[in-house]
Design a protein around this nucleic acid. Sequence first.
DNA 1: CGCGGATTTGAGCGACGTCAAGGAGCGTGG
DNA 2: CCACGCTCCTTGACGTCGCTCAAATCCGCG
Lengths: 253, 253
Amino acid sequence: MAGETTRGQQTKWQTPCQQCPLRSLPSFRDFSAKELDFVAQFKRGELSVERGATILVEGMHSAHLFTLLSGWAFRYKLLPDGRRQIMNYVLPGDLVGLQGSLMDEMDHSVEALTPVTLCVFERAQLGRLFERHASLAYDLTWIAAHEETILDEHLLSIGRRTALERTAYLLSFIHQRARSAGIVGGRRVMPITQQHIADTLGLSLVHTNKTLRKLADRKLMRWQDRGCEILDAEGLLDLSGWEGLKRKTQPFI
Amino acid sequence: MAGETTRGQQTKWQTPCQQCPLRSLPSFRDFSAKELDFVAQFKRGELSVERGATILVEGMHSAHLFTLLSGWAFRYKLLPDGRRQIMNYVLPGDLVGLQGSLMDEMDHSVEALTPVTLCVFERAQLGRLFERHASLAYDLTWIAAHEETILDEHLLSIGRRTALERTAYLLSFIHQRARSAGIVGGRRVMPITQQHIADTLGLSLVHTNKTLRKLADRKLMRWQDRGCEILDAEGLLDLSGWEGLKRKTQPFI
DNA sequence: CGCGGATTTGAGCGACGTCAAGGAGCGTGG
DNA sequence: CCACGCTCCTTGACGTCGCTCAAATCCGCG
């Protein structure tokens, strides 16, 4: 799977952890040398997938977990009749598949929104991590608890905010996350379709479209070609009634 | 706060961990002697609160975390104008306040639905736990990831299930959890009002009432006095399109 | 040029919300 | 014992937000 040789002995090692481009971003915490050593050998390879590829499938048992290195992905669940709910988006630095590594099977699926590269870790080594690297173990727990925080806020949105508020919230949320992950390419954020937004917010595609139009009419954002441009981040945040991301720096692995 | 003396030297120690009533339940994992020792000294006392009391408040910084020993509670968030979203219910064996111990402040509040007893742990000792008890650290991560799993399913419900399906899901969910926590007192489950159900499912009180009526008409459940009786657990599960709880045994602290 | 995916827009409808009113159960004080 | 004031549950009437259906349009790509 990952770490396969492309030709001869050469593995697909694009990025040794020591030079991980994420580490230099202000929003990620620093590693000690010892931690870095461990993570470097914890990493088993890299995995690259196309846009639209499914990285993990609900119900599967996976021997790996991943950190997303570059690109965008999202986590979702399906109802038997095909209704889809997107739980969250996965950005560089985010851990993927921790839940599936701890429980026996994935409770959700993960799909790539763009071409994506992931660092591959072996689930079997998680035990070693917990035994020998308390600080990283702590980080893992932190990461899981942080995801819980985000889901709480999403739940509040879907359960209690109006369509307009929800949409403003989601755009603000994604915008802030993208900024902190260092991937706001100019004015265009988010490689997603309106269908993704609908499936994240629990709305229909048509109503999502009309709601986005209202936001555009208020000059808060502008939709363009699989994504949107944020015109008035403050206005959106205001409308959503959300407090914004709290954490300045986050751990990652 | 907790551990205060009631008279003379006698502390409110109702339950030494060695005799914790939860440990004998089939759904909780066993401790090794070493783990038990640590947890026993990690526990700083007990806290008892009345029905309706607020145990933790969103935005607060708490020096403690808790395991619920007996009773029912729930986690919720509020919008500035008072709209409330309940994220989950807290049953015996559940950890409360982990998120607030890892981040700096609570992202949600917790309120007691019945008189509640909690074991009190000190946040400051979490570091020791991670350093010396890898297996417990692993459990903490597991617990956080498990909560994530539950929130994923709730999100799916609120986002994509109809009012009838949602309600059937919630009743099934609470029923299964109550069973596995060993607190189904006869036929009456759940010390909650219809307002709680509404705030959990993102519905209005009136519509919740009408939806419960439909379930009752189908002889799936019967509402009675702050709670409900499950008449046809299978029928409810079926209607909800939920797969049911997966885990047989869960760790706790 | 043709095709498929994404976005738009209008029309009509239905699920769910709001408003309003009433009843049942219960604890408290007179 | 009774009256009262709560909280919670119920039900009807009516309004509306968001859904479904349907049809265009736009656009990148083969």
